[in-house]
Design a protein around this nucleic acid. Sequence first.
RNA 1: GGGCGAUUAGCUCAGCUGGUCAGAGCAUCUCGUUUACACCGAGAGGGUCAUAGGUUCGAAUCCUAUAUCGCCCACCA
Length: 750
Amino acid sequence: MKEELPKSYNSDVEVEIYSLWEGSGLSNPDNMAKYLKEAGYDVKKPFTITLPPPNANGNLHLGHVCGYSFHDVMGRYMRMTGHPTLLLPGKDHAGIQTESVFTKILEKEGKSKSEMGREEFFRRSYEFCTENAKNAREQEKRIGLSADYSREFFTLDPRLTKIVYETFYKMFEEGLVYRDKRIINQCPNCHTALADVDTEHEERRGIFAYIKYPIVGKDKEYITVATTRPETMLGDTAVAVNPNDERYKDLVGKKVILPIANREIPVIADESIDMELGTGALKVTPAHSPIDFELGKRYGLEVRNVINENAKMEGDIPERFKGMGTIECSKALCEELEKEGLLEKIENIKHDVMICERCKTLIEPIISNQWYLDVKPLADKALEEIRKGNIKVIPIGQQKALEHFYENIEPWCISRQLWWGQRIPVWYSGGKKLYDWLQENEGKGVDDYENETGEEATGTGKIHLGEEQPNVENNEIWEQDEDVFDTWFSSGQWPFSTLGGPEGEDFKKYYPTQVMTHARDILFWWSARMIMMGIYKTGEVPYNTVFLTGMILAADGSKMSKSKGNGVEPKEIFEKYGADSLRMWYYSDALPGSNAPLREEKIKGNRNFVNKIWNASRFIVMNIDDKEMGEISNFKITESERINITKDHIGKVSRYMEKYQFNLGAEAIREFFWHQLCDVWIEEIKNDIKDEGIGSEKRIKSLSELLYILKENLKIMHPFVPFVTEAVWQELVKLGLADGILMSQQMMSH
RNA sequence: GGGCGAUUAGCUCAGCUGGUCAGAGCAUCUCGUUUACACCGAGAGGGUCAUAGGUUCGAAUCCUAUAUCGCCCACCA
């Protein structure tokens, strides 16, 4: 018996609908393949997306939800066209960010990280993430993501770590990863080294100080250098000028006195020095500036560390400066120089500085030993694949950016001085310091180390790869590396690690994947690495298409951020308009390469569309009399003009789907359903049958055709608006007018 | 400094390989309470497609400049 359906669609049922999908198990591609086979369909090639894992330490924002909407529209379409579909979900441990968030939480509880100890900290962080991941997972489901949660991974899952370690071992054996001593980007707030991509540039106010360095053997003759960072002068080991600079020609090879420190340092000449800039004379601080470091290497200059990893002054410097912050020291130095008459002037300038991408703290360039991955050969292969057309980035402009990134890539610093992450699986006999010393001093041995450093060696200086300590011989002491891998070193392996690695069962079935979708702001961090590491480890590109969604912005066009308080929680939108409405907005507005300022009125417009689907369906169902149900459900559909037009429409939408033109697809389904099916056909048929008696041939024929067209429309609309279409489908099932669940129905061929 | 992209109705933007391409949604205005839906229906207004040249039978669509805006990359001390 037919019940009266509610007059308007209530999106509260979305949660229930999701449970129905979950209960069906058809998000699992193995089950879907079985279903297709049993139902007599061709089982086509699997479709796989290893979904971007959001940070496990927080909630999803509208940007994440946007990404999942795109993954899901692709996945649902593929599933309904014969492809067993795997949307593999995960959660990211997000190294630096989580460590900092969790450390702050501990501080609030009055506990400290160091007191807690590494193991306990790790355990507690893991719990914290596991707990928080629930929120993210709920939100993924709320937008309708038809992912296979039986395959969900956390990036620190031991199964993934194992694969990440294997990759590292392979890279070590091939000489691609190595320890090196060079200038790194140290974030004094996060207390770790950062890769170049983990930094940003920002224009900030600063000073440009002109300092006079007295020339040795001359009275009151100086060479003036200009610097934005006077505090680094304590570590100066040369002054550099351009060899073609007439002003300084005679000084090259002479010595000058470094004020305050009272050391003699040479004047050297190098082509790279810009004569126009400042005074044309550059103070060279190899330990604290990348350019200077290179100069130092070229001319064999001494490297003097005067700033430590916490951005405090230290080293071989006058006692009074030790422990000062860099700015404090800069001021103190300028005052002293002023008194000595060696400060020519100070200009106030605006200049670009490097800051931490996470916490916006000023980066301190310091010398340090870190693990590096020589990504150049991997980048070359990635470039080759792009040029062969095996990888496409949508939009194309970003593909050019990616190529540019690969062309100019530098070794990637992959070690981080954190606890939260995958600990680097390396042991050093006699400690890291010994190993690094031997690496730096090629040809020298342990004896030399003891003689030159005056320290006793506690091992052979050998290295051991592995998670477990090797057997101890001759009382040597093995020390495990304290550092962890950069988060992106592991997430760069996501497409194959989550499938069990090259030997995994899932890998054989579901790799390579087809597409990767994420916001464009992590292109270099993530996709760039996944492509390189995928090719490296598996010999195949991990996916052929990178689909970059637009950036979701606040209504005024600015970035949504917690600090500005202009963020909108997905929950708010879900409650007000439902997931389908939000999805439709994404498809039409959050296009690749664009910015999408949140437009609530547009989401509202889509809510109206969702309701229209519900209502038109309700009307069709209402028109079918109970006595006609049987006959209509068994009616043999024949060709008709309306059905042909519908077929064409489905073909058109399918082509949009295959070309990733979801905006056009969304527009087309809306246009067709509303303005063709509702405004024209329903009206026509309403008119046709208004004087017909129940059960008449004309009624049966017209209503059967209408029902058929409705069902085909529900199918083609389902990837876009899965909830409302499934809700309607289930009403049809109740009446015996449809079977199963819509999610697994197969599209009409076209 | 280098690279990329944008500039189309009041707003946010579509417009794929040049020829019904001058569009959509929202907003505005008029009319309509017809037994699916007012989260509705019927209709209307509104743009020399940034500017200037060029290619072409024909350009919003291709090329070249110019202007404005945005993003990314970058060791100018």
